[in-house]
Write a protein that binds this DNA or RNA. Structure first.
Lengths: 332, 332
DNA sequence: TTGTACGCGTTATCAA
DNA sequence: TTGATAACGCGTACAA
């Protein structure tokens, strides 16, 4: 079932059918309707590859990220899809590992598709990846973090500022011996950590032994390890700032198991405000990132480029400290 | 940068370069090496669309599911990608809504890509969707549930049997007034629910008012509603079987808030064994589904079809009751 | 083992 | 407003 079949049925040339679909305004209303009817009757669906080859544009937007399987991704994904629906664009999700070689391979492969845009999550630090992105044959949006110089467009959160708000909150609540734990140390984590170091150093409270990085298939399994390591370094530990809500919740659960009183004995704070955070007991204080809007707006920016309206300035979506029970104690 | 550019550089015809890539055994070792070198030097990457058009095969495998954003999907995704890596196949994830019209549209659009295979999660009940899948131009694997007749291939879990194991466990633990709550009622849920009804009816314990369905953007928010509705129907409720761990955990959290003693006052059991389930306090009894293997094996089945080795029988991956603290009480 | 000729289904370009 | 022709980059079929 091809364009030609439709054309024959209607008695026009294939290019007219093509136009009826792609540039409806260039075909008489009447003819267009006849054509669309025929298309419906015959069940014609345009061939994706032929279109991409002839027009040198696949109408495909790649979403490359190492977090596709993470708990923060679903709302981002929903935002992207809500905006892209009926835009004629296809979305191609690509999981990236943390290996630069692999990412380069994936990017090159993706470029071979004549993509209409790339959304890349997190910011790659390897200069080869950065170079490749700079030469991308399509608009590139980096999302999640904007405290780092952008390659093309960028949207997200100023993680340095978010980190400062979190650590300031813990200090305001009277916590003094505060640990920092993260999973893999990527750019957002680095930015949050810098604020942590800076503020605690200012207060004369910084202890490098209280900064730890942990990893496992399942972040929820790390609660015990985090507490063990931090308490070994500082038996009087009174708070933990976690780079992600998953880890913070792991700590909350472990505190319950050990009978550690949160927030009085130990304050706990995370980042992101995932679905679980409002409902744990005690509920988790966190810095909320507007994840749905992140996806929606990033998609919007890509689509806007085609209309010639391109954001050149990084878009700061802001964040919000959500104070909940895991740090809600009387100021000492 | 095209095949021809490489061919010119090496001094052969384009088709030879094509063969060096796709049928390496049909080209002299020496020549092949020269060609591969040139490809590397020039940074040539095959054009995806041209390939798909000429060969009438996009080497793309679609993963269509309404659960791409759910907490059970990440391990499935990882399994799929681990198996597909270096297979030359591309994976296209497509979020389906629960609307049949929309799914039909998405399927037709996807068929226009000359796909190499389709993995479709959950089983669609609409006959139009089923018909469309039966006429698919590629192998189709239904995954997640196999207690329903398969269209082509199927892999997953017998949810009817899993439901029976769960309800039997609750009965064995002495629970008698057992509620069932689910989110959207899809095929797996229906199957689990049937076992629940059947067993409780056998025991003379079935009460239709204790079967409820709830929904919200965030399943974690539903703990209060679930308990309210079930307790209103049966003030002496002593257990809840949830169609998914997310909901069960929402119930656990709400019990903590209300001071309801789990497992003594109320037993709680879920399905899937997601990352959180082993670490909540109390930990959650659940029926573990081999999600990683589900993805890996489904991908494997698709790839095997090309080698002419096709599973026609549904593949039952089995499941396992994981008894944890949310039902661990002395049998009464 | 390598090459020639052609076709895949669509769109760009230019002409009518 | 519509059409003829060529091209997109690659793979198939067959020939050398």
């Amino acid at each position: 079932m091809t364009l030609t079949d439709v054309a024959v049925k209607v008695g026009v040339s294939p290019i007219t059918v093509s136009r009826a679909l792609n540039r409806p305004e260039k075909v008489t209303d009447e003819l267009r309707e006849t054509i669309l009817e025929a298309i419906n009757e015959l069940g014609y669906v345009p061939d994706f590859a032929a279109r991409a080859l002839a027009s040198r544009n696949s109408n495909t937007i790649g979403v490359l990220s190492s977090m596709l399987g993470s708990s923060i991704f679903p709302p981002v994904m929903k935002g992207i899809e809500d905006r892209m629906r009926n835009s004629g664009m296809r979305i191609q999700y690509v999981n990236t590992s943390f290996c630069a070689e692999e990412e380069i391979r994936l990017l090159k492969e993706f470029f071979a598709q004549n993509p209409a845009g790339i959304m890349i999550g997190g910011v790659q630090v390897d200069p080869r990846v950065t170079d490749l992105l700079r030469q991308a044959p399509c608009p590139v949006i980096q999302f999640i973090d904007i405290s780092y110089p952008a390659i093309d467009m960028a949207i997200g959160v100023d993680n340095r500022a978010a980190g400062k708000v979190a650590i300031d909150h813990l200090l305001a609540k009277g916590y003094r011996r505060i640990g920092f734990c993260s999973g893999r140390v990527d750019i957002p984590v680095t930015m949050r950590l810098e604020s942590y170091k800076e503020r605690l150093t200012q207060e004369g409270l910084y202890n490098p032994d209280l900064v730890i990085s942990v990893s496992a298939e399942n972040p929820l399994s790390l609660g015990g390890e985090i507490l063990d390591r931090l308490l070994a370094a500082e038996p009087d530990l009174d708070a933990v700032l976690c780079s992600h809500d998953d880890l913070a919740i792991a700590v909350l659960f472990e505190c319950q198991r050990r009978g550690i009183d949160v927030p009085y004995q130990l304050g706990v704070c995370g980042f992101s405000d995932i679905d679980y955070s409002a409902y744990t007991v005690p509920s988790l204080t966190t810095v909320r990132m507007p994840l749905y809007r992140l996806g929606y707006s990033a998609a919007n920016m890509i689509l806007r480029v085609n209309e010639g309206r391109k954001h050149t300035e990084p878009v700061d979506l802001g964040f919000e400290l959500i104070e909940r029970d895991s740090t809600r104690r009387d100021t000492q």
